[in-house]
Design a protein around this nucleic acid. Sequence first.
DNA 1: GTGAAAGCGCTAACAT
DNA 2: ATGTTAGCGCTTTCAC
Lengths: 346, 346
Amino acid sequence: MAPPAQPRRVTIVDVARHAQVSTTAVSKVLRGAYGASPRMREKVQQAIAELGYRPYAAARGLRGQTYTIGVMLPDIRNPFFPEILDGVTEWFENTDYQVLLGPGCNGEEAEARVTDAMIDRGMDGLLLVAPVSSRARLERLAGAVPMVVIGRHGQSTRYDTVVDDDLAGAALVVDHLVSQGHRHIAHIEHLETDPTRSEEMPNARRAEGYRRAMRAHGLADEIDIVSTSYTQEGGYLGARELLARTRRPTAMFAGADVVAMGVLDALSEAGLSVPDDIAVAGYDNTTLAALRQISLTSVDQGGRAIGGNAARLLLERITDRAKPTAQVTLSPTLMPRNSTAPPAEG
Amino acid sequence: MAPPAQPRRVTIVDVARHAQVSTTAVSKVLRGAYGASPRMREKVQQAIAELGYRPYAAARGLRGQTYTIGVMLPDIRNPFFPEILDGVTEWFENTDYQVLLGPGCNGEEAEARVTDAMIDRGMDGLLLVAPVSSRARLERLAGAVPMVVIGRHGQSTRYDTVVDDDLAGAALVVDHLVSQGHRHIAHIEHLETDPTRSEEMPNARRAEGYRRAMRAHGLADEIDIVSTSYTQEGGYLGARELLARTRRPTAMFAGADVVAMGVLDALSEAGLSVPDDIAVAGYDNTTLAALRQISLTSVDQGGRAIGGNAARLLLERITDRAKPTAQVTLSPTLMPRNSTAPPAEG
DNA sequence: GTGAAAGCGCTAACAT
DNA sequence: ATGTTAGCGCTTTCAC
């Protein structure tokens, strides 16, 4: 009835005994290290197969590596992050490394807890997506473990970065809307509380890109920014605020697709139709945006490529920690869809 | 220029020396174990704070626990899973445990790899969401580590389960549609390849619930099931298949909200409007369904409650592995929205 | 090329 | 109540 006492895990000692070699030999074969003859390799491999041995990563970590990569995502609900993750896991698929994710890390405190936990678990490398920690903390973390930061501008001598050119991405949207005849184009951004960080955060860069593009088109007077958050709720609240303006914007540029979802929700609630009454654009080109019912004009960052580049850089850094850091910037492209069209009245 | 060689990590020995006590004492304080006087506790706590010591989980795992919980989610893209995760993390928030997620585990092979990896990393407990592994494998896993399975029916003597009453959930949808006058109600399910598993999988139970409810309403002849997958793509393909029927259904019940998204996409493509031309219902009541532009009738499983219950059971099982297993079944509720309405022609 | 032995940071028997 | 000591499973010198 009761499950039998679980048999002790097969260890490297069992394998060594079974193959009639030393544990050292087994360890060498396991790691593909130098100093094992083909004959020995084979004997060990066979013993491993026969015994169904799997190395205990936790124990390996005490001396060497844990073969574990930690990925920190700020928000699992944002459908853009899975794209990045795909690029990452794809890269690690044929390696001995295992990718593990931290759960919802909204906010500095949760982020710190998760990243610390990853380091405490001996992870060999960390991949941080749009982290909100202070620059100093990021540097400190990167000093403790190989690290790559995705979606945060600003270069470091300790960690590599992979970013989308958010300035260019925002400009793509503004250019597109202006070319359609829009002038009063509003933007909904993620509120940046800490001024020291704003230079580096993608949300701030998108807002800045929006501002610059508006000025470039001679629309400095039309600049209209609402600061909420990069969530559906944030989009909803932001749109409502914009709708309450005496002069309502003819187009709304949301800093992320999830934000645009909230915007669409608010517009629908107000009985406004898209794009007839108002144009809406997002950022990230998620699968949501492609839905015909939504058909949201959006900016494609190429999440998969971002993730792939980050994974490659991390692997390189794990191999050589002294390697000079790299900064990869990927160019976004515009995906025009039905949610944007010329304004109703000239 | 180059970052200074990282200082060796602070260990329990450093703390012991600093506090002028034994390492055992520090260990005891760390674990809140018996045998440490208040005075000693304080000394140690202070030393820990002064040195900024954090226990090395990987090393702890070699003797005791790693204080790590592994969560396996089959698909990060399904917006229902974050709900479950919220319930889980909430429960572990004030414990010493850290929750870590496996990345996209679609398919038996990926699932096996991730669960094995979690065990190899000495995780103290596993939470599997809608796993597709064979029953035998699940039993084996549960023999190796405390485990709770979410969203898979069938009881085990080794692991606890938390499920939604999928039969009832499917009936809620059918009842609702029938009460609106629909008769030809089609269902899109996730294809179950392995017959031995079909009894336990939620998708199969929903399909069965649909069948039973249809029969209960005397609509056995109208039963119409298309098997694709629980993804947006699956919904799109399923709906296209249904639209090609000589007698087109007046309502489509998708086994999951993501599936319904694909359905809406296909209907929109075909120039059909919802609910005027055709009614659509989903399952999971995700935030997507609540979007006014979508306004999808759906079944609420209470993901948060499911996650919370699972976390509680897992913690209990970690505490007492011999405890008899529990099976928790939660009742779903219907969330009627605009996507369902009486059929056009009576 | 191979293996003996030390030790990673921590916990848990076992003294005291 | 406190400290001593022996490992956990693996990697890594360092002999041979």
